[in-house]
Design a protein around this nucleic acid. Structure first.
Lengths: 218, 218
DNA sequence: GTCAATCTTATTGTATACAACATTGATAAT
DNA sequence: ATTATCAATGTTGTATACAATAAGATTGAC
């Protein structure tokens, strides 16, 4: 699959925003980016248009594009929606999931556990995402699956920061097990509730994190 | 607000797809579109990129963009997700809605009713969308609001076809009233259930419509 | 010294030119 | 006759050139 340069550049810029190279409200200069990636302005522009649509940057007409990190409120709202989408996926999955997929979930969970033991946070993030991706897929609704993946991707950097909080990791694992259990028994409501709180708590934890940073700054 | 030409063109192409000028699987030629709108390829390309991201067209690398009308399965999936998103909005709104907004909903409903009496289907569509837009707004989650509006816009043309079915219009009005009632009394579960079935039935009706068209074609 | 108007400069938005690739048709070989 | 190869053509993807507009600097008036 030969993706075009503008796609690659879009992903690269995305990375640069996620890892903090480009800070909030910073203007992204087309010519500078073009030089950095050794291409012309055209693919850079296409990349920026894509990022603008996904909401990662803001496009002010005739002024340029600016990094637009979501504020605390926007983040809480996004976590709230993510919790509902995933809860829906779980509810659907409870009826539609295959035995095979249950096995996949358990495997992913085991790999998560292994990552916790090895203190390999990078691996944990990866396997955790995998766990959730399986859940989306087993909802049996590929449109829902895509929407979940999209939002998951958008929230990814923020989910990471909050996972660093003390004790969160172990509890998260426990929640995963409860989710699998509910799915295995076809308990739709229980599964959806477990997923909802599993995600919602992330939003809350993040909120606490933000609040503590704010008071610390004063 | 001075929007750029590519935005205008994107909307125009969208219209042309919705009204059937461009059929499913049809290739959209950049130079032809450029001539049609009397601009160069550049803004046309930007418009097509935008439409590709919103899922209205498919972008095959080095081959061009093709109109991609969702098939029956994809449509059912989208209605299923729409139902869940709106149900969520209703559940949130039940706790957060203002008295003022309740009034707005009742007004919108009345205008819907007026449109039914006048047999003005165009007006009915408009007011019906307005009713739902108020619901989204009163969810108190502007991210959810935007997602709902996005999907509503995408499903708009299909919602219209199914509303032509006999008797659907009147029943739809009754459902609106039930929704307002539940919201007024702060009954979150009831409101969300009412909205869910209100939307879900549209997906089912559409399914029936598709099935009948299929058998008729044979 | 401050404020306003104008001019300069820089940057976006659009047009055009060019390059890379895919498709299609023709030609040739089996 | 059929298939494979290759050329011809057309279309996308990228680079560059130009136009329009907004931010910033400079000069002049008060």
């Amino acid at each position: 699959m030969d993706q075009k340069r503008s796609d690659i550049i879009a992903n690269q810029i995305e990375e640069l925003i996620f890892d903090g190279t480009f800070g909030d409200e910073e203007r992204l200069d087309e010519v500078q980016l073009a030089e950095r990636f050794a291409v012309s302005r055209t693919p850079v522009r296409e990349a920026l248009l894509r990022l603008a649509q996904s909401g990662l940057v803001e496009h002010r007409p005739r002024r340029g594009v600016f990094v637009k990190q979501p504020g605390p409120i926007a983040l809480m709202e996004m976590f709230e929606v993510m919790a509902e989408l995933e809860a829906t996926a779980a509810r659907f999955a409870a009826h539609r999931i295959s035995d095979n997929a249950i096995g996949e979930l358990k495997d992913a969970n085991q790999r998560c556990n292994a990552a916790v033991q090895e203190q390999d946070s990078e691996k944990y993030y990866r396997e955790n995402e995998q766990f959730h991706a399986i859940l989306y897929r087993e909802s049996g609704n590929s449109f829902l699956e895509q929407e979940c993946l999209r939002l998951q991707r958008r929230l990814q950097p923020f989910r990471r920061t909050q996972l660093r909080l003390r004790g969160r990791l172990k509890q998260s694992m426990k929640e995963h097990e409860q989710i699998v259990e509910a799915l295995e028994e076809g308990e739709a409501i229980q599964a959806s509730e477990a997923v909802r709180s599993h995600i919602a708590v992330q939003g809350e934890k993040f909120h606490h994190l933000m609040a503590s940073l704010k008071t610390a700054a004063q």
